[in-house]
Write a protein that binds this DNA or RNA. Structure first.
Lengths: 334, 334
DNA sequence: CTGAAAGCGCTAACAT
DNA sequence: ATGTTAGCGCTTTCAG
């Protein structure tokens, strides 16, 4: 059942059918109704390939993410997909893992499918330098980096202010009497670097020496068990710290588990305010990077590109500390 | 840059270019190399729309899910996407929420995009009866239900044996001395019904009366806080139960939280063996429905449809109890 | 308001 | 081994 069949059944030309399909401008109400009736009756839907061929778009957006199974990214994909869908756009999903080779291959696959734009979910999609493939993609279609930053023409960046968030958390802990923070992290993404920079800056302003940073910034392994084990080792080696900040909720939870195992109690702060923070016990105080707003903004700026140029190409949102049982500023005594 | 440009630059016809693009059968090595060189040089990629128009496929699969933000579904999407990708297929993602209207609309959107098949992620995609839209979609393209069951031509079902899993868990608890289980759930999906049936069957075989079921099967609200509150209420009303089974990890965790709040200790078993189970404390014993195998099987059976008919259209996988701190069968005394 | 016809870029059957 | 050509189904000028 194609446009010719419908034309025949309706007793009009295919041009008129096309007009009806596309809103019905310049079609008499009578013809319009008649054609629509036939379309409904036959359950006809226009062939997107043919349409795509002529228009060079299939109203499809590509999203690249390292791992949808990660609750934080899952939430991001959920927001993006839903919001894009409200614009009538479908989403092609690409899971890249962390190797550059795979990322580039997935990017190319999306490009080959002629998506209208590409969203990069999280700074794990970007390299610390280079990003050639992404930059050259941005020459052809809009590229929107959600929570990362790549400075090149055609790339829209929407990110939370991670550096400031960690920075001020260190101060909040300090002001509550916890002055020897341990910072745990496990990747070296752009975002991870921002967070570390925040930690270092705060420590330095608080008069910590370099030795302190060496001791109190710990890279953790990949599984929850290994993470906890690494922290236990630290505890048992009598390393000095009186509170913990994790670069992601999972790391903070690993710390909570280790502390619990040694019957230790101290403030713990996570990052992302993911579902894990609510589930953990004690419930985890976590830095919320306002993911939904981030996604809304990203989609909005992308949408602006479809009608002109975006009102901004670099947006930063401040984070917010969501206080739960693992640390409350009001309990400001040690 | 299209196939004509490449043909011109290579000094051959577009047919030859097409052959080279599609594997190079019936092309002399010399021409093949020359053409490939030009293609690389120009960074040419065939237009998928034109290709799709002729072949009536764009090598794209649609996946429908109620909510990617749910860690369990996120994991499922992750497996499916990756495995499909290994077959050279791209994934169009549709988030439907739970209203039938939305589900049908999303289904239609995917159908309109001429996907080669549709995967339904989780039984939340199916209604308890009806499913007309899905059944009629299955007349046109393969429909693969992952963890649900719709009995109609063209629909491939791959599901875990939820009924048996709950059934045997009740017995395991019983054999360990816990004979008054509380079952908490919150939806009425197909899968939820299976689980309930398992609970009822076990209870009935253990000689429980109908009154027991009325008291010991509790539907919980939607947020973690509300869930816990509901269970607290039960505890405070002195309802009798000595262990808890949740239809999903989140519900079991809500129970754990409520119990902790009243300083109560009893076995708790969750369902899905999601990341939440590992994060919870005590770590949550959970029923693993072997999601990865489920997804592998689903993709495999779908793949078989591309070359003939699937070796099976209804596969059931047995679940496995992953024992963690919230309940271990070896501690079989009350 | 409506129709005729060109063109979007590719594949595949048919010739050579 | 290579070229010619007829579609695939739609949108969009351009005429009328």
């Amino acid at each position: 059942m194609n446009i010719y069949d419908i034309a025949k059944k309706s007793g009009v030309s295919i041009a008129t059918i096309s007009r009806v399909i596309n809103g019905g401008k310049n079609v008499s109400k009578k013809t319009y109704d008649k054609v629509l009736a036939v379309i409904e009756e036959e359950g006809y839907t226009p062939n997107v390939f043919a349409r795509g061929l002529g228009l060079n778009t299939m109203e499809t957006i590509g999203i690249l993410v390292s791992d949808v199974a990660d609750p934080y990214y899952a939430q991001m994909i959920s927001y993006l997909t839903t919001k894009l869908h409200n614009l009538g756009l479908n989403v092609l999903l690409g899971c890249t893992g962390n190797s550059l080779e795979n990322k580039n291959r997935e990017l190319q696959m999306l490009l080959d499918k002629r998506v209208d734009a590409i969203f990069l979910a999280g700074s794990s999609q970007q390299e610390l330098r280079g990003n050639q493939a992404i930059k050259s993609a941005a020459k052809k279609i809009p590229v929107i980096m959600v929570n990362g930053r790549i400075n090149a023409p055609g790339i829209i960046n929407v990110a939370s202010n991670d550096q400031e968030a960690i920075y001020s958390s260190v101060f909040k802990l300090h002001n509550s009497g916890f002055s020897k923070p341990l910072y745990v992290f496990n990747t070296y993404t752009y975002s991870a670097h921002q967070k570390m920079a925040g930690f270092k800056k705060a420590c330095s302003e608080l008069g910590k020496q370099k030795a302190f940073l060496r001791e109190n910034m710990l890279q953790l392994p990949n599984t929850l068990e290994e993470m906890s084990a690494a922290i236990l080792k630290l505890i048992d080696a009598d390393k000095e710290f009186d509170c913990v900040i994790g670069s992601e909720d999972m790391l903070a939870i690993a710390a909570q588990k280790a502390l619990k195992e040694r019957d230790l109690k101290m403030p713990v702060i996570g990052y992302n305010n993911s579902i894990l923070a609510k589930v953990s016990s004690p419930t985890l105080t976590s830095i919320d990077n306002r993911l939904e707003e981030l996604c809304s903004k990203a989609v909005k700026l992308f949408h602006e590109t479809t009608t002109g140029s975006p009102s901004s190409t670099y947006v930063t949102l401040d984070c917010q500390l969501i206080e739960r049982d693992s640390f409350r500023t009001e309990n400001n005594t040690k």
